[in-house]
Design a protein around this nucleic acid. Structure first.
Lengths: 152, 152
DNA sequence: CGACATTCAATTGCGAACAATTAAATGTGA
DNA sequence: TCACATTTAATTGTTCGCAATTGAATGTCG
């Protein structure tokens, strides 16, 4: 029996889209690193700040749903952001189970300092905006199909 | 001064391809989890096994270049694979600095048990192979452009 | 040959990411 | 009302991922 050609072998690393996505995520992280170092943020912390810059004073749970992260990841991350004086964590008075995350003045102010980050990433991508938007939409659609499978 | 429309705001989370890639990587991870649990592998361990199933008895460094990972990540990971009797780690006799990674018989045998994994992922992707291949090639090209920027 | 730089793996420390569990607050139905 | 389930964050433990450092082996150049 002939062995499958490696260019078609589904078990071959370079034929797997998951590895493309996995390695691209790490490449993004490495490009972000020096940009975010100047803001003293890690990449996941930056994502949380992006959420909060859109809408402030939201429950931890909402941030988690937006970023697909749970409290096990977010609780310590938010404590670090609080230690850095970027957010405030307070129990909701209407529902004591919830923790509301609000930006501090420094947290708000950081948005301006972060304004150049997306352009730097765009430059590093070395790609037109329209191409990136098209790719982004395809990847998001794939992600949503994968997430749909997880919930059976 | 009018604020930019949110659909064009480069600082908006949902407009960023990096978040698409980041969240897709996690979605893949969650789909892989139950499949790899049956093999007692984590996803990064599975990637290492994919490399070794292609070519055996390779230096740790080569695995790292293939997966874009360094010894700080790979050394403990490979020790776990060795503890699971899937690989053997030996110092190269020609160059004592290198550690050669070889599959054990169990490590080789696992390839067959893992053969159904790519099909399951394909099914979860709910997408034609040709579309996936096209996306994969675009993502790999983007990743390579990003990595090119990192080395200045 | 011998000083020096380079290469490579291992180690340490920190920050994710997630499963599993715990505990408290809230909701629901008999 | 009261028993019970559900929701929510926090906690614990394991594994990645990477920066920075260490130490040993090898390469290079005077």
């Amino acid at each position: 029996m002939a062995r499958k050609l490696s260019t078609l072998d589904p078990q071959r690393l370079d034929n797997q889209i998951c590895f493309a996505v996995y390695s691209a995520a790490h490449a993004f992280n490495r490009v972000y690193k020096p940009l975010l170092d100047r803001l003293s943020l890690t990449y996941p912390q930056y994502l949380v700040m992006l959420v909060l810059w859109e809408r402030d004073d939201v429950p931890l749970k909402d941030i988690g749903e937006r970023l697909f992260l749970d409290s096990g990841t977010l609780t310590p991350l938010l404590k670090r952001l609080e230690a850095a004086h970027l957010v405030k964590r307070t129990r909701s008075s209407e529902d004591e189970r919830q923790v509301l995350i609000a930006l501090t003045p420094q947290g708000h102010a950081l948005k301006d300092k972060a304004r150049s980050v997306p352009q730097s990433i765009l430059a590093a991508s070395d790609c037109s905006v329209s191409e990136l938007v098209a790719m982004k939409d395809e990847i998001v659609a794939l992600r949503d199909r994968l997430n749909a499978v997880i919930g059976e």
